[in-house]
């Protein structure tokens, strides 16, 4: 499982204030803490309240890559913000994200190719969030087809079925899980799959338990990657155990420790 740490996000007041005050230490601590807890890459999002997201994103990139060589996941709905992040990056990058809309794909696939970045494609378009599995697969297939036509390697594409909060869209959960499985057979070689995990428990009070239960089910459906809180130890232990059960690692009594020694 490729784990992208979610914590450097301007939605959090602490991060928002660190960004606005240019406090490198706080950002770098968040980066290193997540890596030491098992993050393979770090999501960077300057938040909706940022008055100057273009410079903020470049600053975040520079700040984080001072302390780690892990890939950076540049998270914004504004392609210009993403481009500023790409320009500033020496580390490997992941663009987070494009929708299935042609105008978004045109810009972001080109950027991904230009900067040799990976790309997250979310199964959504200007018409809104899909309501069933067929719509999800159709939107995902649109993104895959665009990448193939424009010679972007599908192995570097991460498809996100859009995880909705359980308290909003309980009826859709089975479809979301099935979509993770279905996405893999859209093309050969297969695209990768990804979810933004914490969204599932948005607005509920037992967040960690819901997160780790859903993650287990997603892993069983073949999930390749997740944006999550790697500092949640119970979540990470559950993930490692789920992958063990799927025979992805060799069992031993200290398998949790063995995984972390990797």
């Amino acid at each position: 499982m490729f784990i992208i740490g979610e914590c450097i996000n301007g939605m959090s007041l602490k991060i928002a204030s660190a960004i606005s005050q240019r406090d490198k230490k706080i950002i770098q601590k968040y980066a290193l803490d997540q890596v030491s807890c098992g993050a393979d890459a770090l999501d960077l999002n300057c938040g909706p309240a940022s008055p100057k997201p273009l410079v903020d994103m470049a600053w975040l990139v520079e700040t984080v890559q001072e302390v780690t060589e892990k890939p950076l996941c540049l998270d914004s709905s504004n392609p210009k913000v993403i481009e500023e992040g790409l320009k500033a990056s020496q580390n490997k990058t992941i663009i987070n994200s494009t929708t299935a809309d042609p105008e978004k794909l045109d810009i972001l696939v080109a950027l991904a190719k230009q900067y040799k970045s990976k790309l997250i494609g979310i199964a959504i378009n200007a018409k809104g969030i899909p309501q069933n599995i067929d719509q999800r697969v159709e939107l995902a297939a649109t993104i895959v087809a665009y990448c193939q036509q424009n010679k972007f390697p599908v192995e570097d594409l991460y498809l996100d079925p859009i995880v909705l909060p359980i308290n909003v869209a309980q009826a859709q959960m089975k479809d979301i899980l099935s979509a993770i499985f279905e996405f893999k057979s859209i093309s050969q070689p297969s695209p990768k799959t990804i979810i933004g995990l914490s969204n599932i428990s948005q607005g509920s009070s037992v967040r960690s338990l819901i997160n780790r239960t859903f993650l287990t089910m997603a892993v069983a459906n073949g999930l390749d990657s997740a944006i999550l809180n790697s500092k949640d130890k119970a979540l990470m232990d559950t993930l490692i155990t789920a992958e063990l059960i799927l025979n992805k690692n060799i069992f031993c009594d200290s398998y949790l420790e063995a995984y972390r020694k990797k």
Binding site: I250, C252, D253, E257, A258
Partner: peptide
């Protein structure tokens, strides 16, 4: 026994 081999290396 591969499981014991791995465990012993960790120990």
């Amino acid at each position: 026994d591969i499981n014991i081999a791995k465990q012993l290396n960790i120990l």
